[in-house]
């Protein structure tokens, strides 16, 4: 055997440097999987309270309840019985528009199929969502979504942080989309310009305020991710506003 260069031990410590992407990672323990596809109304067997917990992941992008507005995704009041991509005031990805053109209507059954395998139902959408493998967990979520109704009877559920601590004057900065287009080159090396979200979330057509808050959170290290913290660290307020303005309505 040749002489081998020694090396130190790797060290037993575990670092708490966790990546939290805006991504569904449901860990749900349920005793029995429910054969959702077999039953005509799977939501009847779901637990809306458990589904309410699961919705915490959804509300990063989707609002529901009284006064819900569109955010990164459309609000989810009055979802059942509605055609896919049917809010006139939300800009959908081509994937959901094709679903609409195919006559897709949201029901317990169609939602179950979508939540189970989003890529099969709406491939290449901007929705950053891997799907929920567990049929019982899907049933719970669907039961909760049904309980929303038109939203008037439920307190607002929203992922918009009220305590972001960002100066309203900073939020009010009008971004220069041309400058944003230039700066966006640094983003599109990783974030797909067409909104694809495999492995890296889509940042296309986010509401300006949500975009600005997210970038400030990275800059202030309130939101974790080493690449994003590094990118945000050298963006000024004007530059963040410019990027938000550009990505809210990117050039085709």
């Amino acid at each position: 055997m040749r002489k081998r260069r020694g090396r130190g031990s790797a060290g037993p410590e575990r670092f708490g440097d966790r990546v939290r992407m805006v991504r569904f990672r449901l860990v749900l323990v349920l005793a029995a999987a429910i054969a959702v596809h077999a039953g005509p109304r799977p939501a009847e067997s779901g637990d809306a309270d458990a589904g309410r917990q699961a919705f915490d992941q959804c509300k990063a992008c989707h609002e529901a309840g009284a006064g819900a507005r569109h955010g990164i995704g459309p609000h989810l009041n009055g979802l059942f019985g509605r055609a896919a991509a049917s809010h006139a005031d939300f800009i959908y990805s081509g994937s959901f528009l094709r679903l609409r053109d195919d006559g897709h209507v949201w029901s317990a059954e169609t939602l179950d199929a979508f939540l189970g395998n989003p890529d099969a139902v709406a491939p290449d959408s901007r929705m950053t969502f891997d799907g929920i493998a567990d049929a019982g967990a899907r049933a719970d979520l669907i039961a909760f979504l049904q309980s929303i109704g038109d939203g008037t009877g439920m307190a607002l559920l929203s992922g918009s942080a009220e305590d972001h601590g960002i100066d309203p004057a900073v939020l009010a900065i009008e971004g220069d989309p041309e400058y944003g287009a230039w700066l966006s080159g640094e983003c599109t090396t990783c974030h797909r310009a067409d909104g694809g979200d495999k492995g890296i979330p889509s940042i296309l057509r986010w509401p300006v305020e949500r975009f600005v808050i997210a970038m400030h959170d990275y800059r202030n290290k309130r939101r974790e991710h080493p690449v994003m913290q590094m990118i945000a660290a050298r963006l000024g307020n004007e530059e963040i506003a410019a990027l938000a303005a550009y990505f809210a309505n990117p050039a085709e």
Partner: peptide, 12 residues
């Protein structure tokens, strides 16, 4: 993330 980056950069 690296898979996402590959998809992003090759599209770029």
């Amino acid at each position: 993330e690296s898979e996402g980056w590959y998809s992003g950069i090759t599209a770029d």
